[in-house]
Amino acid sequence: MFNVRRAFRVSDLVLFIIKKAERALLRERINITNQRIIELKKDKNVQAEKVKERLKDDKNIYDITFYMVDKVGEKEFQRSKKTQINKLNKLTNKHIEKSNTVTEVDLTGTQLKQWVKVLSNYQPTEDEMKLIAKGLNYAIAPSKLPVRDVIIQTEVACQKLNIEQAAKLRHEVVGTLRSSNPPKPNLTKGERNAIKPLKNNKDIIIIPADKGKAVVTMDRNEYEEKCNNLLKDETTYKQLAKDPTQKLKARLINKLKNIRKENRIDDATYQKIYPTAEVTPRFYATPKIHKKDNPVRPIVSGINSITYELAKHLAKLLKPLVGKTNTIYRTHNTSLSC
């Protein structure tokens, strides 16, 4: 006879081992990264002194040299930061929320229309409607475990452990992998088959509604036409002869250098807001489905643009003052004033 209590005990033990192994891997990864940062900082200081001594008679070359060093260092920092965040998310978000699958799979046609607004000539199938209704941030359960990644990270962690601790960690990880199974699929067969047709349909665009949590399907031509009509408003927008990103970046760098020389910001803040990316802010629009003819709201995403980190820093400084002053300043000019 199947022993229910024993099954639960085994399940609890497996979850405990998984949790313990994940924490050990995460702690070791953090230690390795911190040690690497310390070593790089020491090496940078040593090399800086050597370069400073050799270029003491030519300050311009010295400034250019360390501008490039800082640029490369920031690039490596962002790459490493992104890697660590991804690993942390994999460890902390291992349990897929079930709420998205319980109510949405059994949605009726009327309920689907509350979550999906079809403005396109193309009418999605029932499975496509159910898939879209899950939302644009819905995470699809993987079909297999990332065994290779787990093994690689385990070996990285073992390098900093003694022989006994490394053997114990390997044993726990191997046991966990043998007893673990991929998460249950959170899509039906029909919904999974609907992914490719929707992805390959270039005649429509699937975007979030301006308000609420609904998802909208629009004809791509209509969407582009409405966006172009907004941009043709010469009282609001002005067409530029060329991309000003490089020029604005140079002005921001010069401004930051002057502020740093005056000791008005510390090194950490300087490195954080120093522009390394050159992404041009991106324009898109979201449809107002609650209004007649479904006009679109223009949005400009400045993520990874040259002033992105600067804007976040200023927002952090101004946040304590919000709502505590009698004057509010608003600006519609996205250019850099120096």
Rank of each mutant, 00 (worst) to 15 (best):
A194P: 08
M218I: 02
S99E: 15
L119D: 04
K199T: 15
D63E: 12
V147K: 04
A167I: 02
R192K: 15
C158M: 12
K184M: 14
E22D: 10
I207D: 05
N86F: 10
N221Q: 14
N3V: 08
G323Y: 14
E262F: 10
L187I: 06
I273M: 00
E234L: 06
Y308L: 01
K113G: 03
Y270N: 00
P320M: 01
L231S: 01
A214F: 08
E172F: 11
T188S: 13
G212F: 01
L336R: 09
I132S: 03
P183D: 05
D12P: 02
Q246N: 11
E222M: 12
K232G: 06
D63I: 05
Y329T: 12
I253R: 02
S99N: 13
A277V: 00
D106C: 11
K312P: 00
G302R: 08
I18D: 06
I273S: 00
A250R: 05
E39S: 03
K168D: 13
A139P: 13
K249M: 09
N258R: 13
R9N: 11
F16I: 12
K288V: 00
Q165Y: 12
T276Q: 00
S179L: 06
I64Y: 07
Y270M: 00
E224K: 05
K20G: 09
K82P: 09
L26H: 07
H95T: 06
T110Y: 10
G175M: 06
Q35I: 06
E28L: 14
A24T: 05
R54I: 14
E49P: 10
V300S: 12
L336V: 11
P185V: 01
K189P: 14
H332D: 14
L314S: 03
Y62R: 07
